[in-house]
């Protein structure tokens, strides 16, 4: 992007730089490394609900995860949930940010109002969407009834449950994209717009030639963060469907929670967690190699 390579900084590696990053580095050790090592350790033992008991079991817990937990199908559901959610969140967030950036009157108020889905407490989001999807008295059910579809139970059908929870999650998550893209639009130098305008570029051409390239870093990093969060977010699923019907909305973090805390199998839950971590690390790692999120 900008000129000036990665290794031209004059104070590179110096002690003064260390002062800027030492706290985050320690944080990595405390909240990531320790839990990771801890989970690896637990996953190699069996019956490890308490710290006291449990014996070394090698890879038994991993074997059980693959043998019994429908792990791959749950992972597939998780990927649909994650990619589906963030794709639509991006589109809506992008459109909203562009519209707010036109200098329309009351943009501030509108932006704040559009942010409320993100602000609403999680437990309430579940309750509100349950009411909206309610198969008898739900708002959406009512609306679908106008089009002749009576008593549609969106959350109760295997085919529609996942899209329905994704829809609710899009509603909850698009404001974050809007926020990030809004801030990103501010950082695009106006000269670029002016130059494009001078060249007689249409609006669509300018989006493609100026706005999207200008946002590329922001989009890459927002996408990365949103991917990780959405993947790991299951409160909404828990409230709306508890993973049902027939496991149609069961995602990996829900499985981990269920195994660890409902079934009292912290050992197997740890194995699921470590597997998830490894898969995510590979996916994110290879994405970062090619994306602009860490490139200068």
């Amino acid at each position: 992007m900008t000129a000036g390579g990665a290794d031209t900084g004059p104070s590179r590696g110096g002690p003064r730089t260390l002062g800027f990053v030492i706290v985050p580095a320690l944080v990595v050790a405390a909240v990531a490394l320790y839990p990771l090592l801890y989970n690896i350790w637990i996953s190699l033992h069996v019956n490890n609900l308490s710290q006291a008991d449990g014996e070394f079991a090698g890879l038994l817990n991993y074997r059980n995860v693959f043998a019994f937990d429908d792990f791959w199908s749950v992972l597939r559901t998780t990927l649909i949930w994650t990619l589906g959610s963030i794709a639509v969140q991006f589109v809506i967030g992008f459109v909203a940010a562009l519209a707010l950036d036109t200098g329309i009157r009351g943009a501030g108020v509108i932006r704040a109002l559009l942010l409320t889905p993100w602000v609403m407490p999680g437990v309430v989001i579940g309750a509100v969407w349950l009411a909206i999807y309610h198969p008898i008295s739900g708002l959406l059910t009512e609306v679908l009834g106008w089009f002749g579809a009576d008593g549609v139970d969106l959350l109760g059908r295997s085919s529609t449950a996942l899209p329905a929870v994704i829809f609710a999650n899009v509603w909850k998550g698009f404001p974050f994209w809007m926020l990030m893209i809004s801030a990103g639009l501010r950082a695009i130098p106006s000269e670029l717009h002016e130059a494009a305008a001078m060249d007689g570029a249409s609006y669509r051409q300018r989006i493609r030639a100026v706005v999207l390239p200008g946002l590329s870093t922001v989009l890459a990093l927002t996408g990365t963060l949103a991917f990780i969060w959405t993947f790991n977010y299951f409160d909404l699923i828990y409230t709306l469907t508890s993973g049902g019907p027939n496991g149609a909305t069961s995602t990996v973090p829900f499985l981990i929670w269920q195994t660890s805390f409902q079934f009292n199998r912290l050992d197997e839950g740890a194995a699921q967690s470590v597997l998830t971590f490894a898969l995510m690390a590979v996916a994110i790692g290879s994405y970062l190699r090619v994306s602009k999120a860490t490139a200068r």
Binding site: A25, V28, A32, I256, F277
Partner: peptide
Amino acid sequence: FLIGILFTQLLPQSA
């Protein structure tokens, strides 16, 4: 460093 701190986000909260 940047990739390392991102990995703090990878483990699900239950873990």
